[in-house]
């Protein structure tokens, strides 16, 4: 699998990263060399290995269904750039 500049631009857009177009060619090369390295994994024979969901071979510990968290709005909301009526404000996201 190799990245071309269009694919790079698309991934950058999905990740909401701004890329300078002049860096595109160099970045594509560097990312491709990383992908080449990862690609070596394809040589491993994993035919009878179950897909791994987590590097630790243990199961999820579950918690009881109890409310343990209270209202921290007054503490955390001052961190936000804009709030009103208890809501966090962001630029309008629909037309």
């Amino acid at each position: 699998m190799a990245l071309d500049p269009q694919a790079l631009a698309r991934v950058a857009h999905l990740a909401r990263l701004h890329l300078d177009p002049t860096d595109s060619a160099a970045l594509t090369d560097r990312l491709n060399s990383i992908l080449d390295m990862v690609n070596q994994l394809q040589d491993a024979n994993v035919g009878d290995v179950a897909p791994m969901a987590h590097p630790m071979d243990v199961a999820q510990t579950l918690r009881a269904d109890v409310v343990t968290e209270g209202d921290i709005r007054a503490i955390v909301q001052p961190l936000a750039p804009a709030t009103e009526d208890g809501c966090y404000l962001v630029p309008r996201v629909i037309e």
């Binding site: 918690r63 269904d65 109890v66 409310v67 343990t68 968290e69 209202d71 921290i72 709005r73 955390v76 909301q77 009526d85 208890g86 809501c87 966090y88």
Partner: peptide, 27 residues
């Protein structure tokens, strides 16, 4: 219809004041 959220201990009750049931995990 659980009392608390799936990954945090915040209440799931309907109709509370905005963001009064949002813990650090939810945020």
């Amino acid at each position: 219809s659980t009392q608390s959220k799936i990954f945090s201990g915040s209440s799931t009750a309907f109709g509370a004041e905005p963001n009064s049931q949002a813990s650090l995990v939810d945020l």
